[in-house]
Design a protein around this nucleic acid. Sequence first.
DNA 1: GGAGTTCTATATCGATAGGTACAATAGTCT
DNA 2: AGACTATTGTACCTATCGATATAGAACTCC
Lengths: 198, 198
Amino acid sequence: MPIGRPREFDTETALELATALFWRKGYEGTSLSDLTETLGITRPSLYAAFGNKEALFRRVLERYEAKAGAYRTKALKAPTALEVARQLLEGAAELHGDKANPVGCLGVHGALACSDDAAMIRREMSAHRIAGEAAIRRRLTRAKAEGDLPADASPSDLARYLSVVLYGMAVQSVGGASRAELRRVAAIALRQWPKGAR
Amino acid sequence: MPIGRPREFDTETALELATALFWRKGYEGTSLSDLTETLGITRPSLYAAFGNKEALFRRVLERYEAKAGAYRTKALKAPTALEVARQLLEGAAELHGDKANPVGCLGVHGALACSDDAAMIRREMSAHRIAGEAAIRRRLTRAKAEGDLPADASPSDLARYLSVVLYGMAVQSVGGASRAELRRVAAIALRQWPKGAR
DNA sequence: GGAGTTCTATATCGATAGGTACAATAGTCT
DNA sequence: AGACTATTGTACCTATCGATATAGAACTCC
């Protein structure tokens, strides 16, 4: 059976460019015209390759979580709760302080996604955020069981606190905070970390 | 000189309704149809009364800062740096944990405002956020001079940290965090506050 | 060299965005 | 009453949104 005309653009580089766009402007702030112009692709090509805007965004989200969010999964593997927290906070400082990256955060953008048309996207991103916080909470629960956190420490409260600081750093980076400034925020946020028995 | 036909709606209640809309959906997520429908006003009436969408948003922003942001100005008047921080953090917990209020935060929404059309709004809100952080910094600088913060404390770093937690709490509230949960986040964020000499 | 298949380009779809022209209406002034 | 002024409702403007119909171009298979 015939194969058909080959695609004239590389989908991976297209996804990379789309990621940068969505990262900077959010889901609704990025129009199809933005996408086709930046990717150098016509509208029908984009639809043939990715389905529609929403499906493209999902693909982008995967890439984003795999790349930009890698520090999170890595941090959760750190040996101690303190180290987990430190890697999470400093990882966020590195990510959002990197001038090569767009400011902001896909997750936060999605959280506040604007109109009702994007309700589906908003719900989905909300689920992602909750899952991310839950992963931290589970890790801290384990840490507490291991005596790595004091007995009166609340893993869920600490996980929520970490999430709050992480998202706050993303917002702060939109205002142009430098990497060094974000690092100092991370250091302050870490100063109160409860000491474990180990 | 004649006065003309009297306005059939109250601009204050209209602004109140518009505030709720913008608060929940952001600047770009709120359409003129949303506004006219919710306010019970026709399009030309809205334009005659407020100019255009952008001008209306500015009016709304004033109200928002005066009402929802009142806790901030009040907190800055607290006698000690610790009390300032405590009132800021707990005030945010009360505000964002109030089920009567829309989730999120006009300021954070504006920070991430979507498309390029809203660049003006975005810049303006960014300036507001920076001004807010600067106000905290000035207050903490005074606190340090008064011996209310240790000599090695950095007012600007602490102000940035407070801003980060404040914005993070707003984002967290979108995910449905309760007032009690936000209060505990505030408590954790406060635990590390540097002790002054006084 | 077709046949079959998939991509590309033009041109366009209906829906909605923010914003207005215009005439009718409702009030205060002299 | 009549002049003047501001608001109101209808109906419409242009621009852009996301998404497609259609036709031609480029490729592999037989």
